[in-house]
């Protein structure tokens, strides 16, 4: 570990690691995108996209409502890519694959500062209206009154509880430093389906990147909604070049 303390002061409050989220709800969609432009989008982090199919990378879009947790209540939108563990050889196997968080707008100041300071997560402030109460889950991200992205996730079939990824590595890159964060999840009330996502992109740079990956025309591989999720985020560790 070494470089990162497990205690931080954020806006006068002591935040102790691991950070615990006691109640969150999520909707997400995964897309298969061409690997070459995806590689270019995340090149700044020095990480390699995972290619579960030759020439295809996986981009994941998710929106999250944090109701009860150590970073306070807030809404978040995430753009992530599945990446190989640094130094791991190219393989089709998904074992050891992590999630590189490319963009992570949030709508509250406390989590903005905590996320950037503690883990180097690429958080920025946005308006993130969200409706998770209906069968179709909807979210939009707006910055300066302009819509960056809108995502709707249609209902799937219930999965037995206990399924899903219990622990994965989240990667982030801020100011040229790439970090890895242990991220544990315990979902319940999970519904999943093939396809099921509707996406609309605005004119923000990130929207342009996603359009460059063909996301405005793509059918989702799968869509997932999680009614109740608890999570833990460990301290971040720097990943060597």
């Amino acid at each position: 570990m070494g470089s990162t303390a497990d205690k931080h002061v954020i806006q006068g409050e002591h935040v102790t690691l691991p950070v615990r989220i006691r109640d969150a709800a999520v909707a997400s969609a995964m897309f298969a995108v061409p690997a070459a432009p995806a590689r270019a989008v995340i090149a700044y982090a020095g990480l390699e996209v995972a290619e579960p199919l030759p020439g295809r990378a996986i981009c994941s879009l998710a929106f999250v409502r944090y109701a009860d947790g150590d970073l306070g209540p807030y809404h978040e939108f995430a753009v992530a890519f599945l990446v190989r563990r640094p130094g791991a050889p190219p393989t089709r196997r998904m074992k050891g694959v992590g999630a590189f968080i490319h963009w992570l707008p949030v709508n509250q100041e406390f989590t903005l500062e905590a996320g950037r300071t503690i883990w180097g997560f690429p958080k920025e402030l946005a308006d993130i209206p969200m409706d998770l109460s209906g069968r179709v889950k909807r979210c939009a991200v707006r910055i300066g009154g302009r819509t960056v992205i809108e995502l709707a996730v249609r209902p799937g079939l219930p999965l037995p509880s206990g399924t899903g990824a219990p622990k994965i590595d989240a990667y982030s890159c801020m100011d040229g430093v790439t970090r890895r964060t242990g991220w544990t999840m315990a979902p319940s009330g999970v519904r999943m389906r093939p396809g099921g996502a509707t996406l609309r992109l605005g004119d923000h740079p990130v929207a342009a990147e996603l359009r460059g990956l063909g996301l405005d025309r793509a059918r989702a591989l799968s869509s997932t909604a999680v009614r109740h999720l608890t999570m833990e985020f460990d301290a971040a560790e720097e990943v060597g070049p």
């Binding site: 809404h75 308006d127 993130i128």
Partner: peptide, 10 residues
Amino acid sequence: LAAQRLAAAA
């Protein structure tokens, strides 16, 4: 929970 969800929604 109602208060926290509303706070999350800004």
